[in-house]
Amino acid sequence: MQRRTLQWVAGSAAAVVLLGGAAFGIAANRGDDRAPGAFGPSPSTSVVASDPGATASTDPTADAAAPDDAAAAPTAGPAEGSDPADDTVVRVEDFAEAPPVPLDQPADPGDKAVVSLTGITRIDGVGRAIGERSGPALAVAMTIRNDTGAPLDLNFVVVNVYSSSGVPSVELASDPHVQGYAGVLAPGESADATYVFRAPTEGGPVKVTVSHDAAVPAASFEGEIAP
C-alpha cells in the first residue's frame, strides 16, 4: 500500500512538470515577451493611421526619422505686391461730383434726390472713438428729399467737407451732435441728418459733397463760412 502511494505521487509530479513545460513552449512560440497585463501592439511596431493603405513598420526608428510635414510647411502670406487695403472701402476719389451750387441752394445731382444744407454751425467737436480727437469742428445739417419716384436707400450716404486747400476734413462720427442717415426713404418724403467734421477756427471757403449712390454724381456745395 505504501509503495502504490509513492508511485502515484511520483506520477503526479511528472505530469505537472510536463504540463508546465508545454505551457512554456507555447508561450515561447508566440513570441509574447510583454509583461503580464500589457495591451496593444508591441513597441517594435508602428502604424500610420492617416494612410489606410499603410503597412506596419518593424523599424522602431521609423516614426522618429519621418519628417514632420506640418511643421516643415511654410506659412502662407500675402502675395508679393498685393495691396493689404480692402478694395471694397469707398474712397473720396471714387465719387464724381455734380457742378457745385452755393451753400444755401438745393442741389440735384441728376436723379432728383434733392439735397439741401440747412445749417453749418461751429461747435467744439467731441471725438470719443479710436483715432478721433476733440477740437474745433463744423456741424453740417442737411435734408434729402426723395423726388426720384422710387424708394431711396440712405444707408450708403457719404458726406465730405473740404477746406480751401482741397484737403478733406476729419469726420467725428462719435460726436453727440451726429445723426447720420439710415434706412429707406419713401418717394416724396424728406429726411434730416447732421454730420460733424474737424475744421480750423478761421473762416474761409469750404466745399461739401453728399453722395447717396456711387453710380450718381455727388451733390456739391461751395461757399464761405464765418470764423
Rank of each mutant, 00 (worst) to 15 (best):
2 Q>K: 14
8 W>I: 15
10 A>M: 08
10 A>C: 05
11 G>P: 00
15 A>Q: 04
18 L>V: 14
18 L>D: 03
19 L>M: 14
19 L>R: 07
21 G>S: 10
24 F>K: 09
24 F>R: 12
29 N>A: 15
29 N>C: 09
30 R>A: 11
32 D>A: 06
33 D>F: 09
33 D>W: 11
33 D>L: 12
40 G>M: 09
44 S>L: 08
47 V>Q: 15
48 V>L: 15
48 V>T: 12
48 V>I: 15
50 S>W: 06
53 G>N: 14
55 T>Q: 15
57 S>C: 13
60 P>C: 10
62 A>E: 14
64 A>G: 05
68 D>E: 08
69 D>C: 00
71 A>H: 05
71 A>D: 10
72 A>E: 13
72 A>K: 12
74 P>R: 11
77 G>P: 00
78 P>L: 07
80 E>F: 05
80 E>R: 10
82 S>Y: 02
88 T>W: 02
88 T>H: 04
88 T>I: 03
90 V>K: 12
90 V>N: 06
92 V>Y: 02
93 E>F: 04
94 D>A: 06
95 F>P: 00
95 F>W: 07
96 A>I: 01
97 E>G: 00
100 P>L: 04
102 P>I: 03
103 L>T: 01
104 D>V: 11
111 D>L: 09
112 K>M: 06
113 A>F: 01
117 L>R: 03
118 T>M: 07
120 I>Y: 01
120 I>Q: 00
122 R>D: 01
122 R>N: 02
130 I>L: 12
131 G>S: 07
134 S>G: 11
135 G>N: 09
137 A>W: 00
138 L>G: 01
138 L>R: 04
142 M>L: 13
144 I>M: 08
145 R>L: 08
